[in-house]
C-alpha cells in the first residue's frame, strides 16, 4: 500500500509526512486520469466529475463522525458485562 515497513525509516516523522503527501499526489493524479481517460457511469449523479473521489472522502468522514457520535451512545467501561457474569455464577 502506501508505505514500506522498513524498521527505523518510519520512525522519522518527516518520512511519514512524505508518504502522506505522496498519497495526496496519487489522488490528484487519479483525478487527472479521470479527466484524460474518462469513464462510464450508470446513474445520473454518478456521471459527475470526481463522484467516486468525493464519495470516498465524504463517506469516510461521515462514517467516522457518525461513529464518534455512536461511541458517545454505546461506550461502556470494559468491565461492563463482567459484574453481570460474576453475579450469575
Amino acid at each position: 500500500m502506501n508505505r514500506t515497513p522498513r524498521p527505523g525509516w518510519l520512525d522519522d516523522p518527516r518520512n511519514v509526512t512524505r508518504i502522506v503527501y505522496g498519497l495526496y499526489a496519487v489522488c490528484a493524479a487519479l483525478l487527472v486520469a479521470e479527466l484524460v481517460i474518462g469513464r462510464k457511469a450508470e446513474f445520473g449523479i454518478e456521471a459527475w466529475f470526481g463522484f467516486y473521489a468525493v464519495l470516498g472522502f465524504i463517506a469516510y468522514c461521515g462514517i467516522v463522525y457518525a461513529a464518534k457520535a455512536l461511541r458517545r451512545l454505546v461506550r461502556r467501561p470494559e468491565t461492563y458485562y463482567q459484574d453481570q457474569d460474576v453475579r450469575d455464577e
Binding site: 498519497l23 487519479l30 474518462g38 472522502f57 463517506a59 467516522v64
Partner: peptide, 21 residues
C-alpha cells in the same frame, strides 16, 4: 480503465481522508 480509476479513487480518497483526520 473506468473501473480501475473509480475504485482506486474511492479507496485512495478514503485513505486520504483517514490521514487527514
Amino acid at each position: 480503465a473506468s473501473h480501475v480509476i473509480t475504485q482506486a479513487q474511492l479507496v485512495l480518497f478514503a485513505a486520504a481522508a483517514f490521514s487527514f483526520l
